Simulated assay, not measured.
Amino acid sequence: MSDVEWQRAFAARIRQPQVPLLEGITAERMAVYETLFFNNIEGFISGAFPVLRTLFDAPRWQRLVRSFMAEHPAASPYFLQISQEFLAWLQSGYVAEADDPRFILELAHYEWVELALDVSEAEVPSEGWSSLAWPLAYQWPVQRIGVTFQPRQPDAQPTCLLVWRDGQDQVRFMQLSAFSYQLAVRLQAGETSNSALYDLAKQHGLPADKHYFSNAKSLLDDWQRQGIWQPPIL
């Protein structure tokens, strides 16, 4: 066995204890590496998804983390990106057990967004929509889910949220109306506020009158104060 093959076999055993031991390595010695590796990965995942963690008992959580370790070919070695790799596995390789909540994927994404914005190196532009402000829409009321609230059915209407990092580098959250969410998505895509507002008025059957634009201005002013959106520099 070449050195590279040996290293791959060693890594495979660490990820999946069912793999046979390598010749010359005792189970006790291997257990040290397996425990260290599992505890490190599990610690990063638990820290990134604290609400998700509370919804599982210890045996189910361990099975979930071990399945991720064994099955997911992570594309990045950086610890800060483990949460992104875990989310990618949930979206593509995760197999639910009978008692798993149906909202796992959306809750995990919602929790990941906070970490992603917290560590993002993106710069806030001098005008337009901030790259550190993400409008999000979920089937489940993810911002309310916890140990004492675990819905069995999604809401009739989507939960629309805005998550952003402010000027003090604090990640903040607000709930949006369907209209505000659609406006945020259009501004994020680079559309001008006037164009977006006229089109949304037509789409929602609203008169594009003084009252309509006064309300819209109040919303945009609020977003401007919070560093979410800046009007064009003339």
Rank of each mutant, 00 (worst) to 15 (best):
T54M: 10
T54F: 09
G47S: 11
R60A: 06
N39Q: 14
E23L: 07
A48D: 14
T35C: 04
M30G: 02
F49Q: 06
D57L: 05
F37Y: 15
P59W: 02
G43D: 06
M30L: 12
N40H: 06
P50N: 14
F38Q: 01
F44Y: 10
L36K: 08
R29C: 11
R29T: 15
F49E: 10
I41K: 00
P59S: 01
E28Y: 09
V32T: 09
A48R: 10
N40L: 04
F56A: 02
N40D: 04
R29A: 12
F38N: 00
I25A: 09
L36N: 14
A48H: 10
G24Y: 11
Y33C: 08
V51S: 07
N39R: 14
E42Q: 13
A31V: 00
F56N: 01
T35M: 01
G24E: 11
A27R: 09
S46K: 13
G24Q: 10
G24C: 07
R53F: 12
F37S: 15
E28T: 13
A31N: 13
W61F: 03
N40G: 01
F38S: 01
L52I: 07
M30C: 07
E34H: 03
E42M: 07
V51H: 12
W61E: 01
S46H: 11
G43I: 06
E23F: 03
E42W: 07
I25F: 13
L55V: 02
I25W: 13
T54D: 13
A48Q: 10
V51D: 11
E34V: 07
L52S: 08
E42Y: 04
S46F: 06
R53V: 09
T26S: 15
F38E: 05
I41C: 05
D57H: 11
V51Y: 11
D57V: 03
P59Y: 01
I45K: 04
I45S: 09
T26F: 08
F37H: 15
G47H: 12
A48G: 15
G24N: 10
F56Y: 15
E28G: 12
G43T: 04
L55R: 03
Y33L: 06
F56V: 02
Q62P: 02
P50M: 15
V32K: 03
T26L: 08
G24D: 10
A58S: 11
E42I: 00
